[in-house]
Write a protein that binds this DNA or RNA. Structure first.
Lengths: 346, 346
DNA sequence: CTGTTAGCGCATTCAT
DNA sequence: ATGAATGCGCTAACAG
């Protein structure tokens, strides 16, 4: 068990020595601001740097400058297309801003989320972005807010994505109005009898969407019988489980099932199909989010399109916009109803 | 445009002062190794730390220790379920190892990839993980290898995921044998006439899968006419474009289309369907990877299952395993053929 | 414009 | 076991 040869990393000092200049000149030449360095020195330093394969030690730069160039991103689950799309948009924006992204997964666990914020704060990121709907009324929320406040007070920026109500800059989606619009559109399509698969009742996103949908129906004098509203996990398997419950209670009188997000809708579709039902003939389906898969299932899924990548981008942009005093910014992005094969006119 | 109140972060110094102990004691007590500190001091320091809301400055720790606790991950596209699943597994493993993950997206651009490696090296991560098949014979490959070598020589670990042939620790999937097995199985199902949608010819993964599939057919005395092998992007839209080409050339004699990955297969299915073809009646389809969506499209997609999350986990585990001299480790994981509705017996 | 010097926050010697 | 002092790699005054 030999140890491979191991050199220590090339430092700025090494570069300076090789170029025959001082540390400061090397620093200014390589990483410092605009040209305040003699062209000849510049070249010599640059040459030495590439020759030696120098890479600035970001940690050292961070301590010296008292600021990093990283943005920390927390998501519920990166394998979920909702989050991975937001992350993709965010990372693209981060790249343009020459920011490095560090990412952590909360697994939808409030406790873990708090812990992660603490850890990530240690990075002294410029920006901390939390995405994923949190649970309303969690006792841990207070601690979380306190932690985030402390982070802000030391010059950090925090942005909350897709959860309103927290005292920070926010990017939210208009879940209520999107779902309402969806309901209205579906009624226009001729649907009259509905069921819904929702997430946990304390999940804000889920609640808003259900409420919006119900209110949309109400505007047309319709409603969802409470026996036809089932709760399940906010995931694909949750959707499948929700479909199961509906199946148990009988789906004969249901024309359309609204799932509060696309992954749930897709899980439900699979389950319904397994049970021998045909979509949309026996049952129409609608979701929310417009993840990429929504157009690839068949029939393609009617949903409310959210510009996921744009949301990620917007979150970072908001974080990079100078704050105006104590003012909190809220960006609300609208969804757009996309009618597809899963809800043919009826 | 006022500036919000802004405190500077709490330092170890502050904690030490508040606890009435020296910097060294505070350091040992909070972050140092085992218990070499008086219990009373320990408590006082801990109390002061939580009271002040102290978070160790990771950058400072990194410069002082000369080592970080981060792992850098590079993926082609985080919105692609293939990568996001690997990332999910990796991040879970990283969490257990108390490692922070920083992530960057190459967008399948070799130049950008090289640039990113340089940037990320600046972080001095413990581990650098590259995932996403690279192009064979790229001129930039030499530079990339050199950069990665230099990183290793300074004590870093590099792991390449899903590309063989690079002189580093590697986690690969047995693309060739998986595809071959798939072909064999499909012939057993009664299929005789095939077409294929592949990625760019210099994309190793794509090549291996096509070769494996063709060799599998050859073992049964079959082959894919070259006119029925189309090249397209390695993405969902690429699959759709590939389907288009096939449609142009006529699909009447084709029984089954093999796409070299699931996202392409799914894109192709959508396109075929738009063109009025019915899957699997008019055309059967098979993919590769077994992304989550594969079982949710309908008909569900026959494919070769790759344990994506496990691969991510394995990559980190490999990186954390002490190296034995100059020896390179290669872990090859097998795929498993999953027959589903898109390829009924015929 | 350049070089010298003093920190940045922390871990870790070295004495005590 | 504890504290004082040194240094990690780098930037930012500070002088020249």
């Amino acid at each position: 068990m030999t140890t491979p040869a191991r050199t220590s990393p090339v430092t700025l000092q090494d570069v300076a020595a090789a170029a025959g200049v001082s540390l400061a000149t090397a620093s200014r030449s390589l990483n410092g601001s605009s040209r305040k360095v003699n062209e000849e020195y510049r070249e010599r330093v640059a040459a030495a740097a590439t020759l030696l394969g120098y890479t600035p030690n970001l940690s050292a730069q961070a301590v010296a400058k008292g600021a990093t160039s990283t943005v920390a991103l927390m998501v519920s689950d990166i394998a979920d297309p909702y989050f991975s799309s937001i992350a993709a948009g965010l990372m693209r924006a981060a790249e343009q801003a020459r920011l490095i992204v560090t990412m952590a997964v909360t697994d939808r666990d409030a406790e873990r989320e708090l812990e992660l914020v603490r850890t990530l704060r240690g990075q002294r990121p410029r920006v901390l972005i939390l995405t994923g709907s949190r649970f309303v009324g969690s006792e841990l929320e207070e601690a979380l807010v306190k932690e985030l406040r402390a982070f802000e007070e030391t010059g950090g920026r925090v942005v909350i994505v897709s959860q309103a109500g927290l005292p920070f800059d926010t990017v939210v989606t208009n879940n209520y109005s999107g779902a309402k619009q969806l309901a209205l559109t579906l009624v226009d399509q001729g649907y009259r009898s509905f069921a819904a698969i929702t997430g946990a009742p304390d999940l804000m996103t889920s609640r808003d969407r259900l409420r919006g949908f119900a209110d949309g129906l109400a505007e047309r004098g319709l409603s969802i019988p409470s026996a036809r509203i089932v709760e399940a996990g906010f995931t694909r398997d949750g959707g499948s489980a929700g479909a199961d419950m509906l199946l148990d209670r009988g789906t004969a009188d249901i024309e359309l099932v609204f799932a509060v997000n696309d992954v749930m809708a897709i899980g439900a579709m699979s389950r319904f199909r397994e049970a021998g039902l045909s979509i949309p003939t026996d049952l129409a389906m609608a979701g929310f989010d417009d993840i990429a898969t929504a157009r690839d299932v068949s029939p393609a899924l009617t949903t409310v399109r959210l510009p996921l990548e744009a949301i990620g981008r917007a979150a970072l942009e908001q974080a990079l916009t100078p704050r105006d005093g104590e003012r909190r910014n809220t960006l609300a992005v609208d969804g757009e109803v996309i009618l597809r094969g899963s809800t043919p006119p009826r």
